[in-house]
Every structure is written in C-alpha cells, then in structure tokens.
Computed example of a mutant assay.
Amino acid sequence: MTFLHYQLVVFVSVLCLTRIHRNLGMVSALGWTLWSLATLEGPGYIIVQTFTAWISWYGTWCFIKQKQLVESTPKTTGQQTASTRRKATPNALVHNRAHHDELTHALRTAKKELVVVSGWLSDRVVNDQFCTLLAGALDRGVNVHIAYGASDRDGQHRLSETATRALERLKEIGKRSRKGQLTIVQRPTHEKCLVVDKRYAIVGSFNWLANAHYRDRETSLKVHQRRVVVELAAACRGGDTRSTEVNGAVVEVA
C-alpha cells in the first residue's frame, strides 16, 4: 500500500468514527499519530499523516456541529410562510356548470360537516339525485346545515310552489336520518356559500339550492385557508333566525 493510500485510509477511518461520536474520532486521530511516530521514517511523512488524521477529525466535527445548529434553529416567519405557501392548496375560481359538480362532490365526500347557504330553494335542484346524495351524507354521520330565506321588498320570504316541494323533501330526509343531523334554517339571507368539513369553502353568486338552468354567468371563489373557512362556516351558521328546523322538526322560532 502506498503512502497516499494510507492517507485515504486515515481520512475515512477518522471521519466514520467521528460521525459516530466525537471522542471516538479523537481516539482514532491520536492512534494514527502514535502509529505514524512509531513506524514512519522521515519527519515529512509523519507530519503529513498526522495532519491528515487531525484535520479529518476537526473538519468532520465542525460539519456535524454546523448541521446540528441549523436543524435546531427555529424557522423565521418568512421561512414558515414560504413553506406553508408551498404546501397550501391554491385558491381557484368556479364557473357556471362547475358549481353543480362542486355541490355533488361535496355531498359525496363530506366527512363531518356540510354547510349550504342559498337565498332560495327549488325542487329543480333538490331533486331525486340531490336527495339521494344528501341521505347518503347523513347516513355517513355528516351534519348538514342548510340556510335560505332571501327577503322581498316587504322584508318577507315567500315560498313558491317549487320551493315548498323542496322544503318538504328536505324535512322528510331529515326525519329519516339516524346518524347525521340535518338543520334547516330560514332567515333573511342573500348569501351563497358552500363549506365542506372546514377544509374549503366556495363563495360567490351561485344559488346552490335554486339555480338549475344557468341562464346567466355564475362565478365563485374556492378558498382553502383554514382561518377564512372557519370564519365563513361560523358566519353561515349564525345570523338572526326566523325559524330553525332540526331533522324536519321546528325547534326554535325567533
């Protein structure tokens, strides 16, 4: 084995033992120093091999300390914000017919809570497919909160025939539910909002429980920021209540 090969062996052995423990690396460097003094001829060889041993130990230990320091240092606010931004699901716009797809998806995938706020009701939306999906969500244990009640010029909400049929279907589904709770709230509201499990919310112009024909353009914003979603869910469940029906039974009248 040549002298250069020995330097490689010295470097690797000291590096590996230092990574295991600082003291092991120091003992290894000291051992190579004593071995050099005992076996090598010429001060040049002794100096080079001793230098290799100790610089390997010192360099490896400094690298380990720096790495530990970086890992233990808390992230700055800017770094945390950047990291969160990279991981966060981006907001998106929902247009026209895609609203129906979003409502269907929400009914099929909600796990704990679904909030739907719409100014009006219609059995054109609260149809057989909607009722089947709603019943399925309730059977999974999802709590569904529905609010409606846009006011006319007299400050009243007058149910049309199609809205009355929709409301009766909703009440019947609520009465049959044995797991999830269906809460139906009538209050003065022109809000149009869909909140799913506090994971995301969709807010915009679309009347979720009345619009079936898409005569006009509809646009909504789908947001995923948890703070915003939680605030929207609370706002949609709140407000001055005229009447509240839980599982089809009127339990409060303001």
Rank of each mutant, 00 (worst) to 15 (best):
P90Y: 05
A98M: 06
K171C: 13
N91V: 01
V94L: 08
E168L: 03
L170H: 02
S118V: 01
S83F: 10
V115F: 08
G78D: 13
D123Q: 07
H95G: 01
P90L: 10
D154V: 02
L133F: 09
P90V: 02
A163G: 11
T81H: 10
A98C: 01
G155V: 01
Y148M: 03
V94P: 03
K65F: 11
T33D: 00
L133Q: 11
W32L: 03
V27W: 15
H105T: 07
L114S: 06
Q80L: 09
S83V: 03
L121I: 05
A88F: 14
S56P: 01
S83K: 15
L69A: 14
Q66V: 04
N96M: 04
L40E: 13
L30I: 15
H145Y: 11
Q156E: 15
I173K: 13
H100V: 01
A92K: 14
R85T: 08
A38D: 06
Y148C: 05
K65P: 10
W35H: 10
Y148E: 01
W32Y: 13
S122N: 03
L30A: 15
T50D: 00
E102V: 05
H105I: 00
K67H: 12
Y148P: 01
V126C: 06
A88W: 08
K75S: 13
Q79V: 01
W32R: 09
T50W: 02
H99C: 06
G119M: 01
D128C: 14
D139A: 06
L40Y: 04
L37K: 07
F130P: 05
P43Q: 10
L103W: 03
S151Y: 07
V125A: 07
K171D: 15
R165C: 05
R108F: 00
L133G: 03
Q129L: 11
E161Q: 12
G136W: 05
G136H: 06
F51T: 11
T89L: 09
A92D: 14
H145R: 08
K65Q: 13
F63G: 15
G78S: 09
N143P: 12
P43M: 10
V70H: 06
L34S: 08
Q49P: 00
T104H: 12
E113I: 02
Q68C: 09
I46A: 02
H157E: 11
E102Y: 10
K87M: 15
V94C: 02
K75C: 05
L159V: 02
R153Q: 14
A147I: 02
E172I: 07
L107E: 03
V70R: 12
G149D: 14
R158T: 14
